[in-house]
Design a protein around this nucleic acid. Structure first.
Lengths: 336, 336
DNA sequence: GCTCCATAATGTAACGTTTCATCACCAAGG
DNA sequence: CCTTGGTGATGAAACGTTACATTATGGAGC
């Protein structure tokens, strides 16, 4: 592997000149530039990013940490991050923390130790204090997180409340009064917000809140099955189920089918996320769209815009809209 | 950010000693070790991986390049890579090349420039010559690729032929004689092998090869829909469809349904991959299992085992088995 | 002819590690 | 008492860049 020194030697110029050529600095004679480029070509020289990063103290890559690579929600978001980052000349490295806070911490440390430019962290499980401290050292954007006002972290969230309310209204309009709800994992902010929105909606509508109608889920297909079975075997089962994500909603569809129930004839199901898959299941899933791609793009925008900043300078918070996507898994309630 | 020099200073020892402590070398007095560790703790020192990598010329991370992060096949495989790599003390960085050979090249160059330990490259699109050249400079494992004997590259493949043959036999046993086939993308090795196996099977069985029964796909849900529509609207449509992957098979299910056909009553569908999803669609998908997780593990195993090697030392080739997973999307052929 | 300035190129010092040759020290052996 | 050898610690060199202060060059202005 040739180094810049080799190039300089063969081209008969100094190291600094080679560096200037490679970095597109002006103030280098066209003929020298040409000579250098020729040698670069001939030796197949590629500059050593490690050395460059050591010297400049920051690389041009962004780490994207996601909680679960198996959930198709994240790849769609990741694509947004990637496109936006590439457009700005950055490379994205993806890390999967498996919803394990120790893995999360370990990845963060590793990304910092590698002097990456910044981190986009989804569903952070580390403490706020930890997050603040990291934000002092490198650009950081959190998604699906709540930080106190004035925090140095940038945050991109989605209008979770609004999404749930829209979904619930939709069900109400179709005459549903008994609506079950599948929660997400306990430690997730969006999950928390969504349950809360569900509760408040019932209250506002003057509907009774039935504890047994709220079932804990884990965001997985299987979790959806279990929840559906639990809810639909109640002595007085709900006529509609709202799920905290699409994967669990798909599980519901499957389980309802296994139980010989018709969706939406016997029970309506409504998801959350609007995955590609929601269009391909049977029946197609009515769901709440999250602007996944746009979230990724927005995240990178904040990441690149708000750094470096002086200490104590607050980050930005962006909240993206949600909306109902009507398909066939939810319909009029039928008296049973 | 404190450096080792700071630590050395505060601990009253030399830089070298700090390095020895941090790297777990013996030959450092217990009391000095303790002193250093205390200071490390107090200053919250974290060693700079960039500097370390520059000095040692190789980091402890592995780049994993996948063609399409949206296909759930890859995340499952990635998990295998990750677990195996982590167990060996390596970190995995994921890159998505979007099936674009230029992106692929760019990621490879970037990983090399970052002096990563090695690359696991799925469905390589670069030329064999390029691959060989890379393999001279860093550890490399290809998946779903064919390299000439004696190549320096390690390769992990799956028994594609065998998978197709098993699937076709299954359909034959159920009385299907008119079997359609959805190909993958033209440039994919496994796709090529799978079509070839399909053709040979027909020949061996003495069945006619009908050109119109082979439809090109793109591995996506939508591609599956299109293919199904094309095949099922033929004047003499197949009674069974074998797809090169599960995603397209799911598309088939959906499209058949849209056309008012019953699966497997009117048409049998068989996939390839055995994604989690295959268990949750309606009907559940009969498919060919690929040992995704194991592929990832095997890849890392080869990566770590066969490097560094002298020039010209050939890599290993591993071929993992496939098998039919029977569910409900394929059944007896019905005369129409 | 002299100064002054702009332009290009140069050489060297970082960046933060690891590595390696060297040294100081002390106990054991002749 | 002198050598030998082993144990820890040390200091400096290297890894391959970028940044910066410095120098060389040549033309413009007086």
């Amino acid at each position: 592997m040739p180094t810049m020194k080799d190039v300089a030697l063969k081209a008969g110029v100094s190291l600094g000149t080679v560096s200037n050529v490679l970095n597109g600095k002006d103030s280098v004679l066209p003929e020298n530039r040409a000579k250098v480029l020729r040698v670069v070509e001939r030796l197949k020289f590629r500059s050593n990013l490690v050395a460059r990063t050591l010297r400049t103290k920051s690389s041009k890559d962004i780490g994207l940490i996601i909680p679960n690579i198996n959930n198709p929600f994240y790849p769609e978001l990741a694509r947004g991050v990637e496109d936006a980052a590439n457009k700005a000349g950055f490379t994205v490295l993806l890390c999967n923390d498996d919803r394990d806070v120790r893995k999360e911490r370990s990845y963060i440390k590793s990304l910092m130790a590698k002097k990456m430019y910044g981190i986009v962290l989804l569903k952070p499980q580390i403490s706020r204090a930890e997050a603040e401290e990291i934000a002092l050292n490198m650009a950081m954007v959190l998604m699906d997180a709540r930080m106190p006002a004035g925090s140095a972290c940038n945050v991109v969230n989605v209008d979770d409340r609004g999404g749930i309310v829209k979904g619930m209204r939709f069900l109400r309009r179709h005459g549903h009064a008994k609506i079950g709800f599948i929660k997400g994992l306990a430690d997730s902010l969006s999950s928390h917000d969504r349950v809360k929105a569900y509760r408040e909606f019932l209250k506002d509508e003057g509907l009774p809140l039935r504890r047994e109608y709220i079932f804990p889920g884990d965001y997985s297909l299987n979790g959806g099955c279990k929840a559906a079975r639990a809810l639909l075997t109640l002595s007085d089962p709900p006529t509609a189920i709202a799920s905290s994500n699409d994967l669990m909603a798909l599980g519901c569809l499957k389980e309802a089918q296994r139980m010989g129930l018709d969706v939406p004839g016997d029970v309506s199901v409504i998801g959350y996320d609007n995955l590609d898959l929601a269009n391909f299941c049977t029946p197609r899933l009515t769901t709440i769209n999250q602007p996944k791609y746009e979230m990724g793009v927005k995240g990178v925008e904040l990441l690149l815009r708000n750094f470096p900043h002086g200490p104590g300078l607050p980050g930005e918070v962006a909240v993206l809209p949600t909306e109902v996507v009507e398909r066939e898994s939810a319909g009029p309630a039928r008296a049973r």
